[in-house]
Nucleic acid binder design. Structure first.
Length: 895
RNA sequence: GCCGAAGUGGCGGAACUGGUAGACGCGCACGACUCAAAAUCGUGUACCCGAGAGGGUGUGUGGGUUCGACUCCCACCUUCGGCACCA
């Protein structure tokens, strides 16, 4: 029998698909559109390994099933080609990032083609090509004109020796420069931001409307970090013109505030600090300024700070509260100032303990016994907690107020509301909402990115480059190496730097930074639909017809970056009238990680699984099958060569069952013989005559292998049932990305076919005549099987489909449908238990009335004997599944 | 520290809204074919007792709810991931 040889089959069908243009959907046919997207690759130097396949193959399998279900599937591909790794590589190897990137993409394209996915290569997008980044710049300008892009000072990591900006990745965990070991400092540069914070509430709200993993939504919610609370204003003693505004989520603890803290960068620090404290405070601020983010957060344990010498006035009690400066308060969150409530905040307690500040308890734990009404008197005895070892703990939980004047006895939530209301009446506070989310800093002091299309004019300020002058081309010939002073490599190109102001025509300077690559990837899925359009960023009609993306597949590592930025970008574009939808990705799925030897694959560990090593041995289809069957999609797992073996073995089984039954398709010839350009057929693959068996060994009688007519008929019923069972479950499972169980259903079907064929000695070489009842059934079951398998092993499926005499691609063959009538068998097996123990099974008509099931169960088999005269206390009936007879003695027995 | 996910045979992993735990596959054992091996096909395979029929125990640990719990509730242990002074 002809051997299964993937290396002969797979390239042939890929070429055929390409030739027939099967993977280029008509984008104007939008009635049954399906946009299947994967996170595009990053050509940074690492070739695609099996980890990439693990994301792309399942996505493609899903898309293929959708296609066969009759949807018009668009499955594009492209490259996220700008970015730091390419630039670093180029610096290290004295190459150019553009050349390096092109080389990598060329290699990765062949890798991606080997995968046999339905990629529409005609619509490839590459973010580093001027035809693309022109429109990234256009996008920037839309946000700029709408006031959603703005400039302000922000710190960067600065290496004083190399005189250059460092990305976070270039700073070691010790806070030194990765290249020269010099301690990194912070430096403030004026940089561009996108106002993502303005969309915080809408980004939260939108999560409720999309089919994303809960885990991912939670990550985004936490990242946005919305808190409701109050802003409270404190007067500064002796300085009626000054006020310090703090943010708190616990206005109920206001009476417990014993001091205030300003962040070192807070603008009021200079103005309130008493002259005799100015030196110390300034020194403290200087120290904080020099510290990198990493240092500042690595000293988590010990709190530091400095007293300003000034005092604030408590808005309700009029008490004097000392004002401190400390770096445990962040300028970037809230108002950059807090009220210190040591009794009810652990950080404040640590700080107060360190500096000997007062601690005042104002919250008692609520008691359970009174329903809604708080206890009148505090009940905790003094000194109860005095002997606690180690660090003191603050009572952070909500409770009931004490030591809070007329708010005593009130519950936290009510008190917070009442106190805020009172402050508002006095003009000293108001309810407020804060988020952890910061505006999106998009300036990069890097070469390999899209230039920011702005000219800085001494007279007019930052001015947009007119749309007609886009793209602002990234100059090729630039010294982008580190060092040599200055901030951005583009500043070293005189011709790039100099520009006329678009507004006044005067001498200006281009913005020398490039954009964060997340800007490139925030909109690429819009460009896929019209990648060659020079006149506009995208075709609004196409985009509105095809978006949002129906299924997006990629790693969860982008949960709070790419996935958030893309959502923001689309919402902004929606508000500006550029797109008609405001969520980019309707459904989202994350693949797990494939490890090897328990470790994440990386070049450094030398444990990368390279697909091209395995394809010559097992074929692409086996690799696809293993990835889909060997793991749980969202979990991933450890790579095992033996698993690939097993996958290959299954494909061989399918191959053999088909080829030995080739006689079921009279007149069909192997496709290798239909096509003159195909490879030489292997020995033994000659044309078959109708009804003849290839090996001529088995009997080819109308009723198959030596069984009675009744037995054959029962066997047919069983096979048919197995078929419809497999179709139903495999389809459901593929739809919900449960590829491993979908495949197990297909394997069960192959097993059922084997059983149907009977004694392998006889069935070996096609025992069924094409015109027999058995043969007809087997033929149609095998055709359904190969269609189910098509998303997983597309090459093999295509080959077998054509061997069955089909001219069209299996993609056009339609998806098999199950017949519910065949699955709804007239009888069901019901488990019979007595007191929770399985005692018997019985076959009964489906959907028998409950009282009848009950009666039969009690009378059934050994059950009467087991009851042994005991009274039946209860009978539980689970329709079509189980009956449990509970006797009156059961409870006592257990007790 | 906070948030999230997960602990099931020798292994990868199944089990829909509580209803025969271990589907499907890998591995292993035995058998068939073979001079032999590979490949292929068949049978078995959670653990313990038993020749067998059968019985008992089992989904990280300890409790609970239920006729019935991998599934729900409480407490704890372990692993992985995210955030990390966010007031």
């Amino acid at each position: 029998m002809e051997r299964y040889d993937p290396s002969a089959i797979e390239p042939k069908w890929r070429a055929w698909w390409e030739e027939r243009g099967l993977h280029h959907p008509d984008l104007h046919d939008t009635a049954r559109k399906c946009y299947a997207l994967v996170m595009f690759s990053y050509p940074s130097g690492d070739r695609l390994h099996i980890g990439h396949w693990y994301s792309y193959v399942p996505a493609d399998a899903w898309a293929r099933m959708r296609r066969m279900q009759g949807l018009n599937v668009f499955e594009p591909v492209g490259f996220d080609a700008f970015g730091l790794p390419a630039e670093n590589y180029a610096i290290k190897h004295n190459a150019h990032p553009a050349d390096f990137t092109e080389r990598n993409m060329a290699y990765m394209r062949t890798q991606l083609r080997d995968m046999g996915a339905m990629y529409d290569w005609a619509r490839e997008v590459v973010t580093c090509h001027p035809g693309y980044y022109k429109w990234t710049q256009w996008l920037f300008l839309q946000l700029f004109h709408a006031g959603l892009a703005y400039r302000r000072e922000a710190p960067v990591n600065w290496c004083p020796r190399d005189e250059t900006v460092l990305a976070n990745e270039q700073v070691t965990p010790q806070g030194t420069c990765e290249r020269c070991g010099t301690p990194v400092t912070r430096r403030d540069l004026t940089q561009w931001f996108f106002r993502i914070t303005e969309y915080a509430d809408r980004l939260l709200e939108g999560l409720d409307r999309i089919d994303w993993p809960e885990k991912t939504k939670t990550l985004q919610r936490n990242w946005i970090g919305r808190s409701e609370g109050a802003e409270i204003r404190f007067a500064v003693e002796g300085r009626p013109e000054l006020e310090i505004e703090v943010f708190t989520t616990r206005a109920d603890t206001l009476f417990g505030a014993t001091y205030l803290v300003l962040a070192p960068e807070h603008p009021l620090v200079d103005r309130i600090t008493a002259p005799d404290h100015a030196g110390a405070v300034e020194a403290y601020r200087e120290r904080a300024r020099r510290m990198t983010e990493i240092e500042r957060t690595s000293t988590v344990k010990e709190k530091t700070g400095e007293f300003t010498g000034a005092h604030a006035v408590h808005p309700l009690t009029g008490e004097r509260l000392p004002i401190w400066v400390a770096d445990y308060v962040l300028v970037s969150y809230g108002t950059g100032a807090i009220m210190g409530v040591p009794a009810h905040d652990q950080r404040d307690l640590d700080f107060a303990t360190r500096f000997g500040l007062r601690v005042r308890e104002v919250i008692e734990p609520a008691r359970e016994d009174d329903d809604g009404r708080a206890p009148r008197t505090p009940s905790r005895s003094a000194g109860e907690d005095d002997d606690r070892a180690g660090d003191a703990h603050a009572l952070v939980a909500e409770g009931v107020l004490v030591n809070s004047g007329r708010y005593d006895g009130m519950r936290s939530a009510d008190a917070a509301r009442e106190i805020t209301r009172e402050l508002e009446r006095r003009g000293a506070g108001r309810p407020a909402v804060k988020t952890k989310l910061r505006d999106w800093l998009i300036s990069r002091q890097r070469y390999w990115g899209a230039p920011i299309p702005i000219v800085h004019c001494p007279a007019c300020g930052p001015v947009a480059v007119p749309e007609g002058e886009l793209p602002v081309l990234l100059p090729y010939d630039v010294d982008f190496s580190l060092g040599e002073g200055g901030t951005s490599p583009l500043g070293r190109s005189e011709s790039f730097r100099r520009a006329r102001c678009p507004r006044c025509g005067g001498e200006g300077e281009r913005d020398l930074d490039t954009m964060d690559t997340f800007v490139d990837s925030a909109w690429y899925f819009l460009r896929y639909l019209s990648p060659h359009d020079d006149a506009r960023a995208w075709d609004p009609a196409l985009v509105d017809a095809w978006c949002p993306v129906d299924m997006y597949v990629g790693g969860i590592d982008h949960a709070t970056m790419h996935l958030l930025y893309a959502r923001f970008t689309i919402k902004a574009l929606h508000d500006l009238g550029h797109v008609g939808f405001d969520e980019p990705f309707r459904s989202l799925r994350h693949q797990g990680t494939i490890t090897r030897g328990g470790a994440k694959m990386s070049k450094r560990w030398g444990n990368v699984v390279a697909p091209e090593e395995y394809i010559p041995l097992y074929g692409t289809d086996a690799l696809r099958l293993y990835l889909l069957f060997g793991f749980t999609f969202e979990q991933g797992g450890d790579w095992e060569d033996s698993g690939l073996h097993g996958a290959s073995r299954f494909l061989n089984r399918v191959w053999r069952v088909y080829t030995r039954n080739a006689g079921l398709w009279p007149g069909a010839t192997a496709p290798s013989e239909q096509r003159p350009d195909a490879r030489e057929p292997r020995a033994g693959a000659g044309p078959r005559k109708p009804g003849s068996s290839v090996g001529g060994r088995g009997p080819a009688g109308p009723d198959g292998v030596g069984k009675s007519a009744a037995e054959r008929s029962a066997a047919r019923r069983e096979l048919d049932r197995a078929r419809h069972h497999a179709i139903l479950h495999a389809t459901q499972d593929l739809e919900r990305f449960s590829f491993n169980t979908a495949l197990s259903r297909m394997m069960e079907l192959v097993n059922a076919v084997h059983r149907f064929e009977g004694d392998p000695g006889d069935a070996q070489e096609g025992a069924f005549a094409a015109d027999s009842e058995d043969g007809a059934l087997l033929r149609s079951v095998l055709e359904d099987l190969v269609r189910l398998l098509a998303p997983v092993a597309p090459h093999l499926a295509e080959e077998l489909w054509h061997r069955a005499g089909r001219e069209e691609s299996i993609l056009e063959a339609g998806w098999p449908e199950h017949d519910p009538r065949i699955l709804a068998t007239d009888e069901v097996t019901v488990v019979v238990q007595v007191d929770g123990r399985v005692r018997d099974q019985m076959r009964i008509p489906r959907d028998l009335p409950e009282h009848e099931v009950r009666r039969r169960a009690i009378d059934h088999g050994r059950i009467p004997a087991l009851l042994d005269g005991r009274e039946v206390a209860q009978v539980v009936v689970v329709p079509n599944r189980l009956v449990n007879v509970v006797t009156s003695g059961a409870r006592e027995k257990i007790g």
